[in-house]
Design a binder for these strands. Structure first.
Lengths: 226, 226
DNA sequence: TGTAGAATGTGATTTATATCACAATTTTAC
DNA sequence: GTAAAATTGTGATATAAATCACATTCTACA
């Protein structure tokens, strides 16, 4: 499968800063791999040898907690999957798993480092993204620890609708167990809250399809934490 | 107050990658300011115009949560205080306050960007640090959400001893309220656990001075989460 | 197309910890 | 040096949500 990064429609913001020649070279140093829903993309504890980048699909980043798995965040396409784990340590500090069928681009780490060294606009953009990621993770953590389950579920629904699927109607690919691991709540609590929201007319659920009906109410619940 | 970064004993790892000339120039683009315990160093919501760097003392990074403040992390000397907040957004996304009397170096952001552009070893080190920070924040969050209060307090005591004060005996500059905000527990719970640990002979407390007596037991409690 | 396994729904019970309400102590400031 | 303020200690009570224990419903695939 011949890849031409130059014509790739899934470029990251950082990659838009690359020159034609750099993109040409990148083509020779990356490899696209397809993953089925549920497949492991990066495994915590193994050596990290490539920069992984999500071209299409959806993935979850998760780490082992003392009690159970914690889903750290959901990554949508046109984003790197493992920069912190690739550059922060030789060994992957977290796992990444496909939530939907996904295409992942693996970029040779040596070439990636070369790009960082040569193209300052590129490295600058990477720094900006890392910074944003860290701030986002702080915010996520506060939400997880301070809000009650209703607030956390409202959060996650709004995040899916606003940032991931860009629609008030979407198919929840993630199951309730994982949803619980994402916001730190039990599977049962997620189920209860989701159905409560349905009964209260805030959302409509049929199977895996969710439609947000009263977004402003959800925003209210998200903001106040209950 | 004339500053010569070249002879500064508090250089960050990234700064050790700078050339003599760059350090010379840095001297002209930074300013050291002293803060008293409790003083605000960076304020959430204000414009971020400088890169802040902790030369001495101790500081806490905190953000406003829906219910109460969350202390995100404690920063020890020779570390940047606000890279993510400085590069991720125009407006500071969190606050930083001195926990002990501290000296903070404010570096002109334009010059800092110039350094990133010119010295690749420097920018590379900054990227590594950002990556480590993000992974650390994931880990902290799991600990906060999954461990019970005993485990979280054990965590924090070990962190102070191993990473901040580098001694089994240290003076806790942070009060129990903040300690609670750091690990997500109530002030009262912190008080109870601290005294329990004392009664169980794991630590010795007199006033603000803490001595870790049975470190291995604390590690056990930290690991298992209770 | 039927059946095993996965995912979800829901009541009852338990549990860790927050909250409340003070007392006691320590620190700060005048 | 003492009053006021801040911090800490501790019992009683309340509470959100976990856990348990099933019932029910989906889903895959042989």
């Amino acid at each position: 499968m011949e890849n031409k990064c130059e014509f790739c429609n899934y470029k990251s913001v950082a990659e838009t800063k690359l020159t034609e020649r750099e993109l040409e070279e990148l083509s020779c140093n990356c490899l696209t791999v397809s993953f089925k829903k549920g497949d492991s993309i990066i495994r915590q504890g193994t050596y990290s040898t490539n920069v992984a980048y999500l071209k299409s699909g959806l993935a979850k980043i998760h780490i082992e907690g003392p009690y159970h798995v914690q889903v750290v965040r959901i990554v949508k396409p046109a984003n790197y999957l493992g920069l912190p784990t690739t550059f922060g340590d030789k060994v992957n500090q977290y796992s990444v798993t496909a939530v939907e069928n996904s295409e992942v681009c693996f970029i040779d780490i040596t070439y990636f480092r070369k790009l960082l060294a040569l193209n300052h606009d590129f490295s600058n953009q990477i720094i900006v993204e890392l910074c944003k990621g860290e701030i986002e993770s702080y915010q996520k953590c506060v939400n997880r620890t301070q809000k009650q389950v209703r607030g956390k579920v409202a959060d996650v629904l709004l995040d899916f609708s606003d940032n991931i699927y860009h629609s008030d109607k979407f198919v929840l690919q993630i199951n309730q167990e994982d949803l619980g691991n994402l916001v730190d709540a039990s599977r049962e609590s997620i189920s209860r809250v989701l159905n409560d929201f349905g009964r209260e007319g805030l959302i409509k659920i049929s199977g895996k399809e969710v439609e947000i009906v009263k977004k402003s109410m959800l925003q209210m619940i998200s903001k106040h934490g209950w």
